[in-house]
Design a protein around this nucleic acid. Sequence first.
RNA 1: GCGGGUGUAGCUCAAUGGUAGAGCAAUAGCCUUCCAAGCUAAAGACGAGGGUUCGAUUCCCUUCACCCGCUCCA
Length: 549
Amino acid sequence: MTHPNDQSRMDRIVSLAKRRGFIFQSSEIYGGLNGFWDYGPLGVALKRNLKDAWWHDMVGGHDELATLPGAPTAYEMTGLDCTIIMHPQVWKCSGHFDLFHDWMIDCRESKRRYRYDHLQGRWAAHRGKRVFVTTEASGDEAGPDTVARAQKFFGLRAKQVDEIEWTGDLEPLPAAITAGVAAADVLGPDAAAPGTLTEPREFNLMFETRIGALAGDADDRAFLRPETAQGIFVNFKNVLDTSRVRVPFGIAQVGKSFRNEITPRNFTFRSREFEQMEIEFFCRPADSADWYRYWRDRRWRWYLDLGLTEGRLRLREHAADELSHYSVGTADIEYAFPFLAPGEFGELEGIAHRGDFDLRSHMEGKLVRRDGALVLETGADGKPRHKGSGKDLSYFDDITRERFVPHVIEPSAGADRGTLAFLCDAYHEDEVPDEDGKPRSRTVMKLHPRLAPVKAAILPLVKKDGMPEMAIDLYRRLKRHMACQYDEKGSVGRRYARQDEAGTPWCLTIDGQTLADRTVTLRDRDTLAQERVPVDEVVTLLRDRLASP
RNA sequence: GCGGGUGUAGCUCAAUGGUAGAGCAAUAGCCUUCCAAGCUAAAGACGAGGGUUCGAUUCCCUUCACCCGCUCCA
């Protein structure tokens, strides 16, 4: 019935998202903006419900007095909301500034892209033809590679290689260009003809901005955060000093982040402005592996409990060579989005064991891994490449009298990706008998009641005989407890269909019998089953159903 | 960033170098006693900019967006 990994199915989901007001393209009346999306009336409710569920389940409703299943011990959870723009040094020490900031150069012929500063080259000449041969190779391979490339370029046999006249040593391409080498003479690393390289362009995956109304010199430069996590690390000591929390504990944050994705694509999956739900969980180094497994399994369970189809979810442990330079272990929770090829999955959340990398970075400065250990990165002058805060971010356990830098487990979830996954997963097309008993196709969003934008619709069966009045009375009472809608327009079947598309789990219909015995019909979105319930028990009944899993 | 494709109403689609048409949805009203019935009314579009032309939604150029494939993705 459903077609996983099916583009036309994705098209219908996107179409419904637009038609019913879940998701719009940003700035659409001006032609749209690549990589930016807006949430409409239903979409904002869905996304807010997802974030609220996350916050409730991880933070607000967390029982710090109990040892939860799978957890090594009891733990505390608290929250934070930090600014999007932070001190520029935050990003220099975290590593984002260096790693997100590159000059890239494209080859129009080979369609390949290179790090500008990784290319080097030298002049070669043969029988009056002259070309600046470049290579991506480094070290001992660079020289021979340029020879091989020049040989091929001049169309020479191996024994003629000595006829090539070389001028100067290999030098970095940026330096050569600066020294006057014309781009038209440069032979790209994979090109057959010279002059195919584009101008170098600066790829900055962080959004840059300037602080102050009189933006002037480079010192004003600041960045929109590419992740919310750093704000937590930077506030680690503040939270510790003011909230009585003790290790192990977690700090949660929900907020917007920004990345200049090179290729935004696949609806909201890769947006340039997006929202994250992140936890930084601080624990004793000796227990960190256990906590990593706890959070990985806990977060996996969360998606299942909210109704994502298990067969479309995947928990993927990263291989050792895939791990970031600081990470001890990482797992991704991935979903088989319909826009992906069969067998492919897209990341919803990453759970990373980050060791003490982050807190140490903000103490000492930017770290690099050398011989298996994290050490301060230094420049040619021997000074730190990016100086840390110098503040002591270690933790003192006054029961065990131990001082240590906590290790960090980071469950980092994408709110927009999660919303998209639940949207895709909820989309169903099935058949419902119409009033003549003939099957008629319907589109229904089978969203978990906790996530559904509207929990219940209150519908008078017909617009007369006092039914609207009774319905409105119920609507007003229920509205105080949950999002609901009143609708008296058109036939009741049409109204059911409208609510199905919005994902409303329950419809309450007031009919002639209601006037006699004060019972209403409760219609279930997924099963279409109807039951009669006393109108005065509706509020309690639905609140209970909403609270139960 | 490169190559290919696509842009007409909220959605799905027509037609046309000379006033852009339909179905569905949505709106107002009538009718309607359980799964998109019917009737009436009104409303709604050629992605943007430029060029050719007496006249461009149509032809040309540019641009923006979306889709597919590469590329990239700490």
